[in-house]
Write a protein that binds this DNA or RNA. Structure first.
Length: 434
RNA sequence: GGACCUGUGGUGCAGCUCGGAGUGCACGCCGGCCUGUCAAGCCGGAGGACGCGGGUUCAAAUCCCGUCAGGUCCGCCA
């Protein structure tokens, strides 16, 4: 390894000789003195060199293009004149490791063009923060799962049949047949229930072949999936999810509150328990009374309705989250359990955060005969599903779970307007590269 | 898939309504000046057949038609 001192720790090396490595952010080349602002993954600092005629170091600095990668040896001097951290490094030697061409993008460049040059875009402190927060978020989830005895699974992403309708599946060549990219780990986390794993989670990629042109959809994204056995109802699933999210937001609030606020201008609010719950039919009434006619006829809420119900909940309960429950069977897959007293409603829910759907969950139907009947009612062909239906023939505990879109959660958490901003490399109908 | 919007030096915009020589602004780039800068400042310079193809016109970045690319919203969904 190159022995280097990180920029954030320079203040611990007053009057000592150190080596820093990083990217040249800025050069201010004056008559008698020249400054470099150097950035590494921990921050930026000023380097300084007194100018002397025919000094090779000075000449090197004068010719240095922005964003070149350098290794610099020098002595740390605390100096209150320096606005950037109150210190600077007096340059003794500089080694240009990689010269940069003029950059094709800057801070003003539109998102689509920045995504073309994502590796440069991600150099900014702002974009790095997104992925530091994501890491902390996942760490918090794992902490909760670990303390509650969850098992982590890695389900296959290549499958022979669709788990839902099949309309949104990517088909790929698979030797002399075809395979599909998993749109959800749904079947496999239920399989873990049949295996007696009790509680499982998975963080992994899912694929959706939807030509969706919105700021909240992508064709490949990271899904956070949870499945739990021995539940009484979908209430238990919601209780776990609100717990998971509250722990996470408490954690993010402790670690990144100030930086998130100064960078993105949003407060990280740790929600109160329990999250409000509203039956979907009541939600539609509330929305229509607020003056928005829900045009769709299938009984579901539209995005404007979700935004309005979120406003209502914020106003009435001072809460950013709301569980919408008891969706009609018409808009839910066959494996969602129905209410015993009302067969047209499912024991399911969506979780809406600040007006955006981040989760769908449900108690699953674990009784083989009923499950088969519900699949037939939806007009599904049973043969391709038989491997899944078999899970229910040899002893399946009552269970339920949910799937959560990681990028949507991050987007809302940071107050950003587009999942592309919070995805390391976005994939959409019009983007397959870089 | 539907509706709407946008394509102008490397980047972000203005110019288009009301046609008159590629005109302007900001950032970046190149050169020069400047005894400590820090959003540095000052002076100068390079860089664009205005997404593409047709049409109208004496004349098109500007008006019309088509086409391509991208975006936003809806549908679908996490």
């Amino acid at each position: 390894m190159i022995e280097r001192t990180t920029i954030a720790s320079l203040d611990k090396f007053e009057d000592q000789k150190v080596t820093v490595c990083g990217w040249v952010e800025k050069i201010r080349d004056q008559k008698t003195v020249q400054f470099i602002v150097l950035r590494d993954e921990t921050g930026s600092a000023q380097l300084v060199r007194e100018k002397v005629d025919r000094d090779p170091v000075c000449e090197l600095i004068s010719a240095l293009p922005a964003e070149s990668v350098v290794s610099v040896e020098g002595v740390v001097k605390l100096d209150p004149r320096v606005k950037l951290g109150g210190l600077e490094l007096k340059v003794e030697a500089i080694d240009v490791l990689s010269k940069a061409e003029t950059l094709p993008i800057n801070e003003e460049t539109s998102l689509d063009k920045r995504l073309d040059w994502r590796f440069i875009d991600l150099r900014s402190r702002r974009n790095r923060l997104i992925f530091e927060v994501q890491t902390e978020l996942e760490r918090s989830y794992r902490k909760t799962w670990e303390s509650e005895g969850f098992i982590e699974i890695h389900s296959p992403k290549l499958m022979a049949a669709a788990s839902e309708s099949g309309a949104e599946l990517f088909r790929v060549d698979y030797f002399d047949t075809s395979a599909y990219l998993a749109q959800s780990p749904q079947f496999y986390k239920q399989m873990a229930m049949a295996a007696g794993f009790n509680k499982v989670f998975e963080i992994g990629p899912v694929f959706r072949a939807n030509p969706s042109f919105t700021s909240r959809h992508d064709t490949e994204f990271t899904s956070v999936d949870v499945e739990i056995s021995w539940i009484d109802s979908h209430e238990d699933v919601m209780n776990f999810e609100q717990h998971l999210l509250t722990e996470m937001l408490g954690h993010i609030s402790e670690t990144f509150q100030d930086e998130i606020f100064s960078t993105f201008g949003v407060d990280v609010v740790v929600p109160k328990l329990p999250f409000p719950r509203i039956k979907l039919s009541d939600a539609i009434d509330l929305v229509e009374r607020s003056g928005h006619k829900v045009e769709r006829t299938d009984g579901d809420l539209d995005p404007e309705g979700e935004r309005r119900i979120a406003e209502f909940v914020q106003r009435e309960f001072g809460h950013q989250f709301v569980f919408l429950t008891d969706y009609p069977a018409t808009v839910r897959p066959y494996y969602h359990m129905r209410h015993p007293e009302n067969h047209t409603l499912t024991k399911s829910f969506d979780l809406v955060w600040k007006g955006l759907e981040i989760t769908t969950g449900a108690q699953r139907e674990h009784r083989y005969d009923i499950l088969v009947a519900q699949a037939e009612e939806k007009g599904l062909e049973l043969a391709p599903l038989q491997f899944y239906l078999d899970f229910f023939r040899f002893g399946m505990p009552p269970h339920g779970g949910f799937g959560m879109g990681l990028t949507r959660v991050l987007m809302i958490l940071l107050g950003l307007k587009n999942v592309r901003e919070v995805t390391f490399l976005y994939r959409g109908p019009n983007r397959l590269s870089p």
